[in-house]
Amino acid sequence: MRLLAIILLLIFIAAGIVFGALNADLVGYDLGIAQLRLPKGAALLGAVVIGWLLGGLTAWLGVSMRQGRQQRRQSRADKKSPVKP
């Protein structure tokens, strides 16, 4: 399973490099405050990576905040009625 994942990852990296090389021509972006000129392939990969990282970060933050809330609630309950072993 792990070997398959590594092979798939290598294939995607190779595809990314080939994709970048094939689309090396520059494209201009006007962001309002600044103007950027990036290769087409890099822009595509960048969009995918930024989106993936943002999604991961959102999920991680959601889980950690929920756990924090639960711990605070538990400690309040412990103070009210301490556990007698």
Binding site: Y29, A43, L44, V48, I50, L53, A59
Partner: peptide, 21 residues
């Protein structure tokens, strides 16, 4: 190309969110 990029970001977002979970 901009349309492709804009549609790729939410798809990648969902994928990232799912992977993290």
């Amino acid at each position: 190309l901009v349309l492709v990029l804009v549609s790729l970001v939410p798809i990648a977002f969902v994928l990232g969110w799912w992977t993290s979970r």
